[in-house]
Simulated scan of single mutants.
Amino acid sequence: MTHFNALVNITTAQNKLVNEPIQIMISFENFDSHGQVVFMTGDLDPLLYPTVFEGKWPTTRFEHIDGEFLKISDFHTRNAAIGHYNVKITPLDRVTG
């Protein structure tokens, strides 16, 4: 399990968020999953923005771009307000604690 601070950009079907500081948790010890990324802080409305990303979802695409940021893209099938989304997570520093 890893915690770190990051700047997050999210583009959804209807909304856009730029350089939002968020604490991220990544876990690889979840049952039936290759890993999970969760936004731990921030005032994001989960009806407007995705906040949990599972490695077991077959359409979710995780890409580590140029050793600088994580890009997650998918289509939210249960919420048309989110629809197709792209998330860019740029790490800032590790959270200790």
Rank of each mutant, 00 (worst) to 15 (best):
K71E: 05
F53D: 02
G97I: 13
Q23D: 15
I22S: 07
G97Y: 04
Y49C: 00
R94G: 12
E63S: 09
A80W: 07
T2Y: 02
I26S: 02
T96P: 00
A13K: 07
P50F: 06
L48V: 04
G67V: 09
P91S: 08
T41N: 01
G55V: 09
F69C: 12
E63I: 10
N9R: 06
G55R: 03
T90V: 09
R61C: 08
G67T: 11
V37S: 01
T51V: 11
L17S: 05
T51I: 08
D43V: 08
F69V: 12
T41Y: 04
N5T: 07
M40F: 06
F39E: 06
N86F: 07
F62A: 05
H34W: 07
L44K: 14
T59M: 14
D45Q: 03
N30G: 13
T77S: 12
G55T: 07
T2K: 08
S73L: 00
M40R: 10
S27V: 03
P21S: 07
F75G: 00
I72V: 09
G55C: 08
F69K: 13
V18C: 06
Q23H: 10
T2F: 05
L47D: 05
I65G: 03
V18P: 01
Q23E: 15
N5P: 01
F53C: 10
T60M: 13
W57G: 09
G67A: 14
I22L: 09
N30Y: 11
D43Y: 05
H34Y: 12
V18T: 15
F75A: 09
Q23P: 00
N15K: 14
R78D: 13
Y49A: 02
V38M: 08
F53G: 13
T96K: 02
T2R: 04
E29L: 08
G35Y: 04
G35H: 03
R61E: 15
N86R: 10
D74N: 03
Y49I: 02
A13H: 11
N79L: 11
V95C: 03
N79W: 11
V8A: 02
Y85K: 03
P58C: 00
L7I: 08
T96G: 02
G55K: 01
I26M: 12
H3T: 12
T51N: 03
T90Y: 10
N86E: 14
D32E: 10
T2M: 07
E29C: 01
N15E: 11
L92F: 04
P46M: 00
K88Y: 14
Q14S: 11
A80Q: 14
V38F: 13
